[in-house]
Design a binder for these strands. Sequence first.
DNA 1: TTATTAAATCAAAATAAATTGATATAAGGA
DNA 2: TCCTTATATCAATTTATTTTGATTTAATAA
Lengths: 106, 106
Amino acid sequence: MSLVTDQSSCTSPNFVTYAEKFKAMSDPKRLELLHLLCINGSTCVCDLVDEMNIPQSKLSYHLKILLNADLIFKETKGTWSYYSLNEDVMSRILSRELCCILTPSS
Amino acid sequence: MSLVTDQSSCTSPNFVTYAEKFKAMSDPKRLELLHLLCINGSTCVCDLVDEMNIPQSKLSYHLKILLNADLIFKETKGTWSYYSLNEDVMSRILSRELCCILTPSS
DNA sequence: TTATTAAATCAAAATAAATTGATATAAGGA
DNA sequence: TCCTTATATCAATTTATTTTGATTTAATAA
């Protein structure tokens, strides 16, 4: 079987789905957010506000974009919301070199 | 030396530069273009117009965005322009799984 | 119950990106 | 030279995204 034609995951690539993920990653603030979640692990919004130095509503907006793109997870505990990286998805998209920026210990 | 702290390429990541590249990849038509260049290698604009089925000025616009993001190369021969993938950059950004969609034989 | 805090949502304004059709440039051939 | 073809650019419009500050929702504590 030819190495070139056996591209299991490569047939009929879903460009729309990938474009959505790349769009979510197309903003420096959102990359910084992913980076923070990568370094700190699951993090409360209240801590992200402090670290990111942007208005709370803006942070909320950017988190939602990352969440909708399936790049991060959300978990609510009482009044607090914790966000974390979706490492599986991230490592399926990005190179090792970039994963090492955006996902922990890889 | 710790594996975790030796992240040569990972210190002070340039989020702006990466965001630009992701923005260039944030459109299905542009991903399709990258995919075509990946499959066909260096390709003339006139052939891309046929394959992509979009107006010429639109194609020109999208090619320029990919070129400015350093994701593709351009070479002019007489009246014709040939575009090709910047495989180095692509493989430094994307996972193997995605490279196999967007860059040849990897 | 009232007050406080955390986080999401909303509407308006500002900014940016994409689309369109027309025009410009420039190379090559008749 | 004149015509044709290839590609890029332009200006106007449309569409999408981001920003802002105010408001809402909901949990907890006093």
